[in-house]
Design a protein around this nucleic acid. Structure first.
Lengths: 152, 152
DNA sequence: AGGCGTCGGTCCAGATCGTCCAGCATTTGA
DNA sequence: TCAAATGCTGGACGATCTGGACCGACGCCT
């Protein structure tokens, strides 16, 4: 799926996606046109979804994050989903099996904002909210290695 | 906090962090040294946490994702946290208020792997797992605007 | 008001980088 | 066995980045 060089390139880019082709080339021992070609193919294959920038929500004033479990009332599923998508403070939302239909992450600047935003869903769904106290693991990609499972 | 130019730069970089300084400069109407300087400051201030690459777990064979709520048994909190951090398939973990101590995201290649990984925690914590069926919102940053709250 | 420091900007030139192309080695498949 | 395909390299050339000199706006102090 990925060869060793691809993995090394990705690992470097995960740390700094603005690394120049020349640097990448040096670090993996290829020429820069080869690296350019490999990156192009990784994008084509969809392995690289995007080169992007990770922004610190705190630095923007979002001092609070919450995980919200959302159970739409009967018949309200689509309205609720649309609402969630439209509220930009939802930074992530997964539709899951089980009682809770959605699990979402909410960025807010204050408890007041949290309350205001949840109020906009309150008449269409039951929610339960857990405030995030710490982030032992911040978003990271899955292991790149081809092997089956994390070292046992 | 951020001025309009900063916001525009960030928006461009969120879409493609490899955009050249020259392009950035053109798009916001500055010279490229000024843009370089602004980016440097955004990094210094911690607004930009990293330039990185978004990888598609599916393209790597991780066809399954799950949200796992984890409630360590009495006295096991730290051991459990350490264990979670060490298992690379955990792609995210938040420590939250409420009964569930941790909420984590797990990337796996099969239901079998899911079971194997959860087994490694099973004797130290209660877990409840929800399989992700769809992702209405994939990871996105909070709104960059300085205004209080999403359009009401 | 005038002087001065700072901040953020421009312009320019030398250094660095990316891209295109021709050519070569290795692998693949008919 | 040979032809085509693949993946790489090196070099040339154009594009981009970087650092320095300089400039204007602004706020502050005297």
């Amino acid at each position: 799926m990925l060869d060793d060089l691809d993995r090394r390139l990705l690992e470097i880019l995960i740390k700094d996606s603005r690394t120049s082709l020349k640097d990448l080339a040096q670090q993996v021992g290829l020429s820069s046109p080869s690296v350019a070609e490999r990156l192009r193919r990784l994008e084509d294959r969809g392995v690289i979804r995007a080169f992007t920038v990770e922004i610190d929500p705190q630095a923007l004033g979002y001092t609070l994050q919450a995980i919200v479990r959302i159970r739409p009332l009967p018949g309200k599923l689509h309205i609720v989903q649309k609402l969630i998508e439209e509220i930009a403070e939802f930074g992530e939302c997964d539709k899951v099996t089980g009682d809770d239909c959605f699990v979402a992450r909410l960025f807010v600047r204050s408890i007041g904002d949290l309350d205001k935003l949840l109020d906009r869903i309150a008449d269409k769904a039951e929610t339960s909210t857990a405030i995030i106290k710490a982030q032992p693991i911040r978003r990271r990609p899955p292991p790149l290695a081809a092997t089956a499972i994390s070292n046992p």
